[in-house]
Design a protein around this nucleic acid. Structure first.
Length: 845
RNA sequence: GCCCGGGUGGUGAAAUCGGCAGACACAGCGGACUUAAAAUCCGCAGACCCUAACAGGUCGUGGGGGUUCAAGUCCCCCCCCGGGCACCA
């Protein structure tokens, strides 16, 4: 009998598809512990790639394992279905975005079913581009607006010419568009909608410390992104000008303020603009700096450009000591961080030091390390610039001289506040989330602009604001929706006067910020979801996806969860208990991409080797958190392995079925060591060792590659015992148990083959609802173990001793060994190390 | 520059708590079966030295030092690759 995956898999897929409730979660009252297993939803591009196959194979193996462990499992799937590719396809092939998207979804669903993924399609599937989903985006938008979390403002925004739309800061990667890696992002001044994510900045940051189930890498990336920095605002009055407001600087080192020898403004600081109007020399210099900053920002070189600056000729007054310092404009000061102005302390800041040296500004030391004067002192600390603060004190700093830096920071901030020229403050790198997109294929923003009433929200009972279907899509001239009069022109909800709809759509990251809540109640027409259902399933027990979303989707969805909690929809403050980020799939050492021509098609693999082999290879070739080099020979190898499983099980299945008949169809009694043959005992021992190994790896570290290796070892042994199984040297009941268990262990990885063989050996019922085998420690225990014997740490031989042997017995056995004796002949044993159950090491001279 | 990963045979990898380095595979080589090939099955396989062979020896987890009876694993320094952040005041 040949293993024919194409035939087996098609047959089982049809059987599984016939039961739409097969993978449905059970009622909350089931009494079982719940397990929400989630993989990131794909964009429906039309074809799965290997990264998807890997991601979903991991999730599927886990879901099946958890079902078998007795959990009530929610395993949903959906489509991140809005976005630009649909519009590009529309331009290219003249296909409406909706049609194109829905067709892609159908294609990809077929692929997912071919792979045998255990999703509850009927109960959970959502497509974010359909009104029954995106109406809730609009509903949330209105809630945000009510709460002051959605607001409109004009500001400088990132513009991708290829997308012909605005991007959020998170969507700019190294100065380029996240979708177009070679496309530099431009800055444009535009009126836009924003979500006030900065209101949650502290909570988003602090929450990271309470999330041990998330990779440290992702948490670090989010910490950097949020970029909280505690410091002090200090106002420097501008000398000899009554009507100029003071310059507010932000510093984290107010304790160094007595060393400030200049104030530095960003070229785009408002005051610079003002002064430039009457100072052409300054104006030219500043313009150059702005252009240079822009160019550097776009090439990602900001941070490396040579510092330069120009004096404004004005002076500022240090409020702590009344000293006058010059005001400069410098190209290393960023307008959009802090206040766009700093006090420059060359003695205690690397950048200020470099700048001061170039322009000959004074360098005044006001901090000194707390040296003991002894030999242990690091005299390098005496060199400038000196940026230490932990074990350092102030010098030459008026009444604060002698204070420790960290304490002085607190005291001096308080002093500034008492005297009304500053205060303690916190700044963030995180900016509010710009959500307006000048594109068609997205959620319409539910707002109306009335000439009399200004911005008016669309009343809740008028949702959804439907996206018009028949529309001509172009790449230019602003939002496509603005060219659809039937969409744009509406009466004002307040007064009925002719008004204009908002014609921008929402960022598609809005869709994915809360989709996993919708899964818990996907067909709800009255609310985004039922709170009781969400509270049962949340937080997600295991979320699995690519690390590329570490500061996009994963920060937005944390924000969204907190907003939903605050409006009373849910209890949890974080969406996912555990996050797993799988590695990339690589081919010939590089990420698969069309331009490199190294893409491997999952369809082709499945056609050649079957879905079981393809997904099992994706789990076998590397541990799931590491990058995986795709080698087709490896898939062929897995296919050969599955063929062996198939051939041997098929060969012995009549005998196993016969045993069922003898026992009147009851469970075959578990084969213990009673009335056991030596070969049966050995095989049974290996079986239970295998169960223990796989169960452990599944629960802890997810090294599916070693799980599969363990199954192979078991299979190799069964294969080696083929004759013994045939001639009765291994009892039939033992054989039955071995094959039965083998199939159960294989089922999370190769569900099609496992289902086929399960029936073949005479069982019925859905495999993933069978209890996971339990390892019997007594059966797994070896009676005899091997102990390596070393001399001076080098291996001499390996001896066999009874499993329970104590140190003395092991030592005696080791010293009785011939090889050991010849090795130590003529030498004396200085020391003997015996580690029970592990090894013997003889130190000889 | 800072913060994470990672570096082990020809290749993917394993060694989970300091205890036989290279499990399990891929590719390779040899054999069986076959008229032949494919498929399948059995076997060999870190490098080097020595040997007719058996046996034996030396080296070996990016490099250098250290701790230890014992280091891929722990400590210190350095190199390389991948990712993230970066004039963030």
């Amino acid at each position: 009998m040949r293993y024919t995956p194409a035939e087996i898999e098609t047959r089982w897929q049809a059987r599984w598809d016939a039961d739409p409730t097969l993978y449905a979660a059970e009622p909350h009252s089931s009494g079982k512990p719940k397990f929400y297993c989630l993989e990131m939803l794909p964009y429906p591009s039309g074809a799965l790639h290997m990264g998807h196959v890997r991601n979903y194979s991991i999730g599927d193996a886990l879901a099946r394992f958890m079902w078998m462990r007795g959990y009530n499992v929610l395993h949903p799937m959906g489509w991140d279905a809005f976005g630009l590719p649909a519009e590009n396809a529309a331009l290219k092939n003249n296909t409406p975005p909706r049609e194109w998207t829905l067709r892609n979804i159908e294609q990809m669903k077929v692929q997912m079913r071919r792979i045998g993924l255990s999703y509850d399609w009927a109960g959970t599937e959502v497509a974010t581009c359909l009104p029954d989903y995106y109406r809730w985006n609009q509903w949330f938008f209105l809630k945000m607006y009510e709460k002051g979390l959605a607001y409109r403002k004009s500001s400088k925004v990132n513009w991708c010419p290829q997308c012909a739309t605005v991007l959020a800061n998170e969507q700019v990667v190294g100065g380029c568009c996240w979708r177009h890696e070679d496309q530099l992002v431009e800055q444009r001044e535009l009126e836009q909608w924003f979500f006030r994510i900065t209101k949650y900045a502290d909570e988003l940051l602090d929450g990271l410390d309470t999330m041990p189930g998330w990779p440290e890498k992702v948490r670090t990336m989010q910490r950097n992104w949020i970029g909280r920095s505690e410091g002090t605002h200090v106002d420097f009055a501008v000398a000899a000008t009554a009507d100029t407001p003071p310059i507010r600087v932000f510093t984290t080192r107010v304790d160094t303020i007595f060393g400030a020898t200049s104030v530095q403004l960003a070229p785009e600081h408002p005051l610079v603009k003002q002064w430039a109007q009457t100072d052409p020399t300054l104006a030219t210099a500043v313009e150059e700096m702005i252009a240079q900053q822009k160019a550097a920002r776009e090439t990602g070189d900001i941070g490396n450009i040579e510092k330069h600056g120009v004096s404004t000729g004005k002076k500022a007054i240090n409020p702590f000591n009344g000293e006058m310092v010059p005001i400069w404009v410098a190209n290393y000061i960023l307008a959009d961080y802090g206040t766009g102005a700093i006090m420059s302390v060359p003695a205690h800041d690397e950048r200020d030091f470099e700048f001061a040296q170039k322009y000959g500004l004074p360098i005044v030391r006001v901090i000194a390390p707390s040296l003991s004067g002894g030999a242990g002192d690091d005299t390098e600390d005496l060199a400038l610039p000196y940026t230490g603060e932990a074990e350092a004190v102030l010098i030459d700093s008026g009444e604060w001289t002698g204070e420790a830096c960290l304490e002085a920071q607190q005291k001096m901030a308080a002093f500034a506040q008492q005297n009304a020229f500053g205060e303690k403050t916190t700044t963030f790198r995180l900016k509010d989330w710009g959500v307006s997109r000048q594109r068609y294929w997205g959620t319409p923003i539910p707002m109306i602009n009335c000439p009399d009433h200004g911005l008016v929200p669309v009343p809740e009972d008028q949702l959804p604001v439907l996206l018009p279907e028949k529309i001509e899509i172009t790449q230019e001239g602003g939002s496509p929706l603005s060219k659809v009069p039937s969409f744009v022109n509406v009466p004002c909800p307040v007064c009925g006067k002719p008004s204009r709809r908002e014609t921008d759509t929402m960022d598609t990251f809005v869709d994915s910020s809360w989709y996993f809540y919708r899964y818990t109640d996907a067909r709800n027409t009255r609310a985004p979801f039922d709170s009781e259902k969400a509270n049962y399933w949340f937080p997600i027990d295991q979320y699995i996806g690519g690390v590329e979303h570490a500061i996009l989707h994963l920060i937005y969805s944390r924000f969204w969860t907190k907003v939903m909690r605050d409006i009373g929809l849910i209890h949890n403050g974080e969406p996912a208990e555990r996050l797993f980020t799988q590695g990339m799939v690589i081919k010939d050492g590089a990420k698969m991409s069309k331009s490199k021509g190294n893409v491997v098609s999952p369809d082709l693999m499945i056609e050649k080797y079957g879905a079981d082999s393809t997904r099992m290879y994706a789990l076998f070739a590397a541990p799931p958190d590491r990058d995986l080099e795709w080698q087709e020979e490896g898939v062929a190898g897995i296919s050969r392995f599955l063929s062996r499983v198939y051939r041997l099980t098929t060969k012995f299945s009549p005998a196993i079925r016969a045993l069922h008949t003898q026992t009147h169809g009851d469970e075959i009694p578990a084969a213990g060591f009673a009335n056991q043959t030596p070969k049966g005992e050995a095989l049974l021992r290996l079986l239970h060792q295998t169960i223990a190994k796989i169960t452990e790896d599944f629960s802890g570290r997810w090294h599916f590659n070693t799980c599969i290796a363990a199954i192979m070892i078991l299979m190799n042994e069964i294969s080696a015992q083929e004759a013994a199984l045939e001639n009765g040297e291994i009892p039939a009941a033992t054989m039955a148990e071995v094959f039965r268990t083998l199939i159960l262990l294989l089922s999370p990885f190769a569900p099609f083959l496992a289902a086929e063989l399960w029936e073949q050996i005479g069982h019925s019922g859905v495999l993933f609802r069978q209890p996971w085998p339990v390892a019997d420690a007594d059966l797994a225990r070896e009676s005899e173990i091997e102990i390596p014997v070393q001399a001076n740490g080098k291996l001499v031989t390996v001896i066999r001793v009874p499993a329970g042997a104590d140190e003395e017995a092991i030592k005696t056995a080791a010293l009785a060994d011939e090889k050991v004796l010849s090795r130590i002949a003529g030498k004396t044993i200085a020391k003997t190390i015996v580690v029970k159950g592990k090894l013997v090491n003889l130190v000889v001279k």
